[in-house]
Design a protein around this nucleic acid. Structure first.
Ligand code: ZN
Ligand code: ZN
Ligand code: ZN
Ligand code: ZN
Lengths: 152, 152
DNA sequence: CCTTGAAGCTATAGCCACTAGAGATCCTAT
DNA sequence: ATAGGATCTCTAGTGGCTATAGCTTCAAGG
């Protein structure tokens, strides 16, 4: 039996995050000690490690829930697991493509300014002001600007 | 003078988002009509377009605030604008690198399953369960799993 | 046995960049 | 005058957590 802290150390998932996963139903509620503390078994640790690695692969929590549900089916056909993995792959590829468009534009913008633009006339500011100078569509990157929200 | 709806159409920024930008101080509060409705001038539209394009380039709102502040300085040296743009570029590059690691792993995982894995033994599920089979570090992608948070 | 300090508990609030809805008011055209 | 679209304020929700406060429990040392 593991305490929540041991689970955290063995999985790399932080303690409050484990409680959060339980709250949203991603991890089953474990047994409790006499003093109401969570006590996990080996299967719970396996599942938490599964969740952790799936997160590292970029899966959404609801996709992970789907994968976990698949595992518990009597006849776990590959079909759905494959579909979920391929959907994730194509989402990642879409993201890469959008980011590469941004990279192109940002590189162009940064290269356009060598620190010697005229007063009130910096190429960086002008380029950010106007999409007309862009060479790609770099359309609607939905999540860029995100920062390590989960980082400590 | 533009209404907020005209601003929205001319900039591509949704009406509630414009109000949000005003609320957090990214856009100055405009004059109001007799009936308390917002009335914007051309400069406000320019600024909103600047914000919109900067968001499309992936800048954080606080970085955008920094860029706007730069523009209003008496002596807008390129230095800071350049620094902000290059920081954004390197963040984008870091993201691309992490996503490419994910792409490698997800491709390997998806290719490992052709829909004919043994019962209870799908390669997809096994690969997600265990990082040991991964060929890259794909370490701690902090924001993956993000979806178009702003999307309708 | 008793104390101490770490670890655990619940509950609440905050993060980012928005979006959605309720219910009231305003503006414009007919 | 009236219809109906646009706008107003305010509140709450999204995802995937993190942080804090104020408590209780557990394990080791004296
Ligand atoms: Zn410059
Ligand atoms: Zn552009
Ligand atoms: Zn399979
Ligand atoms: Zn891995």
């Amino acid at each position: 039996m593991f305490s929540i802290g041991q689970m955290s150390r063995q999985s790399g998932v932080k303690v409050p995050t484990i409680r959060y996963y339980e709250q949203i139903g991603l991890l089953p509620a474990p047994d409790r000690s006499a003093g109401n503390q969570r006590r996990y078994d080996q299967a719970a640790l396996q599942q938490l490690r599964f969740i952790r690695h799936a997160r590292q692969l970029g899966f959404h929590l609801d996709a992970i829930a789907g994968l976990i549900e698949l595992q518990s089916l009597p006849d776990p056909s590959c079909h759905d697991a494959r579909r979920i993995a391929r959907a994730q792959l194509s989402e990642v590829r879409g993201r890469i493509a959008r980011l590469q468009a941004l990279e192109t534009e940002l590189d162009r913008i940064a290269e356009g300014c060598h620190g010697d633009c005229g007063p009130g006339d910096c190429v960086v500011l002008a380029s950010v002001a106007d999409h007309a100078s862009c060479v790609t569509a770099h359309d609607a990157p939905p999540d860029l600007g995100d920062s390590p929200r989960g980082a400590p």
